[in-house]
Design a protein around this nucleic acid. Structure first.
Length: 290
DNA sequence: AAAAGCCCCTGGACGC
DNA sequence: TGCGTCCAGGGGCTTT
């Protein structure tokens, strides 16, 4: 479900309410999500305070006062929601933390719900966070200066796959998912089927074109962030509110509807088992010159 | 080694 | 109404 804008929206909502909160109780309602919870998960985080909530790619990092961090990935359908304590437990609520913000204040509960259980939660000592298996191979953070034409060129030159697969690859750029890859390629007039290596070698003005792609990636992410993310079915922010960027999709989920630029019908095709949406007129395939 | 295929899981939409 | 089928925002493991 959540890509960078959705995870960042959740992060900022959680951080605003939970900074400084002490984890006074923790209930796990199953032994695992996608993976088993770590051994000693409960004792490693109980009674610590949440100092800050950060985001890396599509991961949330809860930085705790005891030098541990909680690493959370939401998979396709995970969510963290803040509510009052003693709420009725809902279907697919798997983790409930009771949190105390001030010393004498009322408790809040922070609940992780995930119908498909593709999400996962770890805890790790801060000193080992960078080397954690989930984080150590992540690529460029797209809303930073590190995403630029030169850096992207160096990465894409080494890959022999198509643009759609390459931009979904979290070791190249970390945080893009199916929606924003489709939208960024459409904005850039690049076919999802074009081979990235061939593009780097044969395309004229390749750095200018990659600079435009980088700019479009940043813009679509930024616009989605300002809209509170995209809600297709069940995505909600930390307060339970849906995002609105789905109303601005040019191609994603719009098969056979008119392209906003040229009016021809949007196409859908499957690449590596995932749907790609594109306009074959505005995103023509490169001519191969061999 | 890198790239493609397959799998994890639940639920909603749609066709009959 | 109730099946059966397909599809979904992700990523890691297995196969080629």
């Amino acid at each position: 479900m959540p890509e960078l804008p959705e995870v960042e929206t959740i992060r900022s909502g959680l951080a605003a309410q939970l900074r400084g909160a002490a984890i006074v109780d923790l209930q796990l309602y199953r032994a695992n999500l996608r993976y088993d919870f770590p051994v000693n998960f409960k004792q490693n985080i109980l009674n610590a305070r949440i100092l800050e909530i950060e985001r890396r790619a599509k991961y949330l990092l809860f930085r705790l006062s005891n030098k541990y961090s909680i690493i959370s990935h939401l998979g396709m359908s995970g969510s963290w929601v803040i509510q009052s304590v003693n709420q009725e437990r809902k279907k697919h609520d798997h983790i409930v933390m009771n949190l105390q913000i001030g010393d004498n204040s009322e408790l809040l509960s922070l609940t992780y719900n995930d119908p498909r259980r593709f999400g996962f939660v770890f805890c790790e000592k801060d000193e080992n966070i960078e080397q954690h298996s989930s984080l150590r191979n992540l690529g460029i953070e797209p809303l930073t200066l590190n995403l630029n034409a030169q850096n992207l060129y160096e990465k894409l030159l080494k890959k022999k796959t198509n643009f759609k697969t390459a931009l979904l690859d979290q070791t190249i750029i970390a945080g893009l998912g199916n929606i924003y890859v489709c939208e960024a390629l459409w904005r850039s007039g690049i076919s999802p089927f074009d081979n990235v290596h061939v593009f780097c070698v044969q395309q004229e003005q390749v750095l200018e074109k990659l600079a435009a792609l980088c700019k479009n990636i940043k813009e679509v992410l930024q616009q989605a962030l300002e809209a509170g993310g995209s809600s297709l079915r069940d995505y909600k922010n930390a307060s339970g509110k849906a995002g609105a960027f789905q109303n601005n999709f040019a191609v994603y989920n719009r098969a056979s509807l008119p392209c906003p630029k040229c009016g021809l019908p949007i196409q859908r095709a499957v690449q590596n088992g995932r749907s790609s949406f594109y306009c074959e007129n505005c995103q023509p395939r490169m001519k191969k010159e061999i």
